[in-house]
Every structure is written in structure tokens, then in C-alpha cells.
Simulated scan of single mutants.
Amino acid sequence: MCGRFTMDASELEILKEYELNDEIIGFQPRYNIAPGQNVLAIIHDGKKKRVGFLKWGLVPSWAKDTKIGYKMINARSETAHEKPSFKKLLAKKRCLIVADSFYEWQKSENGKQPKRISLKDRKLFAFAGLWDKWEQGEEQLFTCTILTKSANKFMEPIHDRMPVILPKKEEEYWINPQTRDPDEVGQFLSHLPSSELLDAYNVSSLVNSAKNEQRECMEPLL
């Protein structure tokens, strides 16, 4: 699964990386993003890419209770095209969720050791995400989930699952507004390379609590 991540970049870096022209209202770097919080996401409205914030934890448009979002922070990429909760979203509500690393907890004899994992070859990257709009009366929620997959060889000693990190060249396909057959998208996900060059190091148990948001969360543990 993916339960925490970071987005340590400047607004200018993000606008340049994703060729965006709009100001990111409310932008700030984040060091310990947790479910239920807002995450920076990019969609395509059919005319241009749009950047803004989505609440992490998918609340489908048909949901009766918004608390379902806490159970839907992740979606398994292998089966998403078969699930009613995700099938329609795969067809036309795909988004990029901007990050520069994620945290995972490695089991050991001494408990669980949190690690920060990032790409070796580039700083910013995007998780493959799905989003939806929920509304009831005047209340509206725009929420998202992060797709996950089986761990690659690098991640296997740390955890058996990992988020789907889109190769740079595939980001445009993912947010292209064209409606696609969910099975086609499922095939796309299954054929993504699993050889991302990753790096990892131990970090402080500060990240165990979502209340901790300081930069120290992602500093190497000495």
C-alpha cells in the first residue's frame, strides 16, 4: 500500500516539470502527507491541464457515507478494472498525484523501521491516481486514490506492495481526457515497467504520526 508521502519542491519546479501555467493556490511543500489530507493533483479537462488539490481517500459519487474515503486511499492496479468502485474512474477520471518520495515501514526484529523512498534519476514524479466528485445538496467533495502494484525487486525486502509511479513518458497518456475502455487501462497498468531506479534510507519515527509535518520527518536517520 501507500500510506504516506512527501512533496518537497517549489511551486516553480512543479509548474515547469508539468508545463503548467496556472498559479497553485495554497501551495506549500509537504513532508508527511497522510490519508484524509489534501494532495496536489493534475487532471486534464479536455482543453488544458489543471492543477489543484484533492482529498486523499476516494469517496465515490454514489457513496452514502463520506467515511468510506478512509478505506479507499489505495486501489489495486491489478484488479481496479474489475471493481465497480474504480472501473468508471479508470475510463475517464485519471489524475497525476505529484510527489518526490513516499514512506514505507520495513519489519524487523526491533519493530517497524520507516524508510523514505525516492527515484534516483529525477526528483519529482507522479503516482497514478483516480479521482471522483461527490455531492449531496450544497456539499461537494473532490477526492482521490493512489493505485498500487506488487513490489519490484528493490521494494520486496521493504514491503510487498508499492505505489504505481508513472514513467515520465506515460504521464500524458494517463491524464489524456479521452475515455478509454477500463480493460485497456488495466492492460496499460500491467505492462508498465517495474524497474524504477529507487533509493531508500531510514528516517525517524516522527513520520509515524500524521501530526508531525516538519522537514525532519524526511531527513536521514543517523
Results as ranks from 00 to 15, higher is better:
E78M: 07
E171L: 08
V207N: 02
N74A: 04
W174T: 11
G137Q: 10
L192E: 05
A99M: 04
K120W: 00
F27S: 07
L141E: 07
Y18S: 07
K55V: 15
K83Y: 00
K16G: 04
F27I: 08
E219P: 02
F27T: 08
F86L: 00
V164D: 08
E109P: 00
K88Q: 14
K115C: 06
K211H: 14
L40V: 08
W131M: 12
L54P: 01
L89W: 07
G52P: 04
M7E: 05
S77I: 08
F188S: 07
R180P: 08
A99W: 02
I146V: 15
F188I: 01
Q136E: 14
D132Y: 13
V98E: 07
A126S: 15
L166E: 03
K64M: 13
L89Y: 10
R50N: 15
K16W: 03
N74Y: 02
Q106E: 11
A91S: 15
W56E: 08
E104L: 14
V207I: 12
S85K: 00
G46E: 10
L89D: 05
P29A: 05
I73P: 00
R215M: 10
Q37A: 14
T145G: 03
R50S: 11
L221Y: 12
W56N: 03
E13P: 04
R4S: 05
P84W: 00
I43N: 07
N74T: 02
W174R: 06
E219C: 08
Q37P: 05
E19R: 11
K49D: 11
K88P: 00
T6N: 05
R94G: 08
N176S: 15
R76K: 14
Y103C: 11
G52E: 07
A41D: 10
P193Y: 07
M155Y: 02
I146S: 05
K87N: 00
V51M: 09
Q37Y: 12
M1P: 04
D100V: 04
I68K: 09
Y103P: 04
G46A: 01
E213T: 15
E11N: 03
K168W: 06
I68Y: 09
N21V: 05
L15C: 04
K123C: 11
E216Y: 11
P84K: 01
E216P: 02
F154K: 06
A34L: 09
